[in-house]
Design a protein around this nucleic acid. Sequence first.
DNA 1: CCTTGACCTTGCCATTGTGGTAAGGTCGAT
DNA 2: ATCGACCTTACCACAATGGCAAGGTCAAGG
Lengths: 138, 138
Amino acid sequence: MNIGEAAKASGISAKMIRHYEGIGLIEESRRSPGGYRIYSNNDLHTLSFIKSSRSLGFSLDQIKQLLSLWQDRGRASSDVKALALQHIKELDDKIAELSAMRNLLQNLATECHGDNRAECPILQGLEQQCGEAKAKKT
Amino acid sequence: MNIGEAAKASGISAKMIRHYEGIGLIEESRRSPGGYRIYSNNDLHTLSFIKSSRSLGFSLDQIKQLLSLWQDRGRASSDVKALALQHIKELDDKIAELSAMRNLLQNLATECHGDNRAECPILQGLEQQCGEAKAKKT
DNA sequence: CCTTGACCTTGCCATTGTGGTAAGGTCGAT
DNA sequence: ATCGACCTTACCACAATGGCAAGGTCAAGG
């Protein structure tokens, strides 16, 4: 099947399929005489695996590892689990970070009348030491 | 004060201060005869405001709006609150998305023995319809 | 046989926010 | 005069995705 069909079937855009090939996440596909990429059901299976992994928030780099474990019959499930647990931790950290932001902001917003007067606890909060909320990049 | 001191005092890197100037988030600063940027306490105040806003997860675009409201004596606090509520919604959406991922992944991980055998429910989950987890970009 | 339209190809640019590096200028102190 | 610490601009990079443009392929229908 062509890339368009593979895209539709896998839920990954044609653009991204080409990109994944370019960065070596998937192998270069076979080509038709005219140069069109051709995908087998097996390829589609791989694309779907990638799609699922992306849906769970794994990075392309992590997916590269997942893929090689997936294709390694001699893998230890502990290796997979380690990757998963690490990602769960990343998710938890991010969730905690966002929740902290949310709560701080919610507090400020609650105090704000939200009328046509200029006085505004939200702006006052931002003006002050509000930066205490440590928001680290991950 | 020079950009280095302003950076240290505001918690925003010199690199970013220049960048913010470049994209018009802050005005071009005064310059010393030698071409060095010079910052006043007032400028520092603005930088701190930006820092706080970033800590709460506002985008630079949103911060541009916040800044103009902040500097507008005739603002209505409702406008600020609207911005804040919108951002809270964004945060909530993101948190919900990440939590959904986390929970799905946690379920898979719980079922995985994590030993040296190859059988692995996590990989099996990714292989199957796991893509059900709709993870939309925001 | 030739045209048309749908699909494919590559390649480059944009996004968001931040970091890095390089080549050079400034400044204060010795 | 010189040295080190700081500054300047101007590029490149990341991650993951989208968009556009100029051109090639292919199948169907006239």
